[in-house]
Design a protein around this nucleic acid. Sequence first.
DNA 1: TCGGACGTCAAACAAACGTTTGAATGAGGA
DNA 2: TCCTCATTCAAACGTTTGTTTGACGTCCGA
Lengths: 216, 216
Amino acid sequence: MTAKETSQRILDVAEQLFAEHGFDATSLRAITKEAGVNLAAVHYHFGSKEALVEQVFARRLGPLNRRRLELLDRAEAEAGGTPCVETILECFYAPALRTFTRPESGHGHFMRLFGRTFTEPNEQMRNMFVEQFGEVVRRFSAALSRALPHLPAEHLWWRMHFMVGAMAHSLSCPHGLRFLSGGRCDPDNHEEALRQLIAFVRAGLRAPVLARQVTS
Amino acid sequence: MTAKETSQRILDVAEQLFAEHGFDATSLRAITKEAGVNLAAVHYHFGSKEALVEQVFARRLGPLNRRRLELLDRAEAEAGGTPCVETILECFYAPALRTFTRPESGHGHFMRLFGRTFTEPNEQMRNMFVEQFGEVVRRFSAALSRALPHLPAEHLWWRMHFMVGAMAHSLSCPHGLRFLSGGRCDPDNHEEALRQLIAFVRAGLRAPVLARQVTS
DNA sequence: TCGGACGTCAAACAAACGTTTGAATGAGGA
DNA sequence: TCCTCATTCAAACGTTTGTTTGACGTCCGA
């Protein structure tokens, strides 16, 4: 087994176990045992558990967000500058959801982990998010702002917040949908999830701005 | 210090630290030190760390969901059976968000914790959710179904899933909104959050049902 | 054939964890 | 006053954690 194979297997197994049990509840011993490598290999190849976590994310998030920007670039070129809301949503959601359909890629485990991580309050994660998502936030909020010219900026930010939340919840809480539907909806049908998500969020983004009540 | 005071303080501090760092990352030693009580007090009053976690939830979730059902009862009585979508949403969201505005209640920490817990895959949590939310899901999905008679059940379930997701994300990921808006939206303004959430989700629930493409 | 990277391995490290124990404390009733 | 019972306390239990160590094997260039 080469060194590349070893570190690759550690990353794959770590991704899966982190997704299933969380970071703190997953020990290096569980990872190395499942991967069939020596315990010390983690520190040899990555330096620490924290660094391993970072690597697990960096390996996936870079390509994911690059793909998002790529799709947005193309959509903007085709639309002559301002694609419609649903096209923008497709650019944002599809890279996260479509990759599910290729289970061999391992993206499935990662996306579940990814959904969980929005909530992780730890400092390290926070910084990585700012770094990895800065460009995506800038580009997509600009695109949505152009597609929704009548929507005040403050409202757009709130709605983008919900737009992210609906996706994160779908990724990280599939059992929630099973519970709600009594098992009659399949959260693993990601094409359906994408359709439903876009239909829902598109309408939410386009909702009329209500006159603000005077708070008593 | 009475026994009631001791277990109360343990619950309060546990709620806060769980919300900040997660269950696994919060040790009983950190809780008891912060609460100013002896380490063994947790096992004396609760039996185990797991039982403490359960108590933290039971203390809040019961009243929260009772309040939701109470509001829905009243709304249905006033509307003569079928309140509109936004009224139903208000019944569902307000008990979770409005309690924030009374910071002395400690609900704030709990709701952050609560948002996180949707994602926790642990068995114990899963069971509690089914028990605590069974009635709420039944009543609210029935009410929404009556308010949206043209929406197929399968679509309603997906949309309720997103409706929960938007809320959970708002509760658990306030830093997300700050990041998105560059600090210009205040996630702790819960009246505003409630308004924005209802405006967004109402439109999402009412979105037209798209003709399903034939998948190639 | 030698020698030095490189990677793997079992073993051990200190620290932190949840949990248990048995003595000490203090208020209330007989 | 004495006994009782609920509560608190410091100390220790055995595990598990992330991390480190030094020996061992293996491959490649000289």
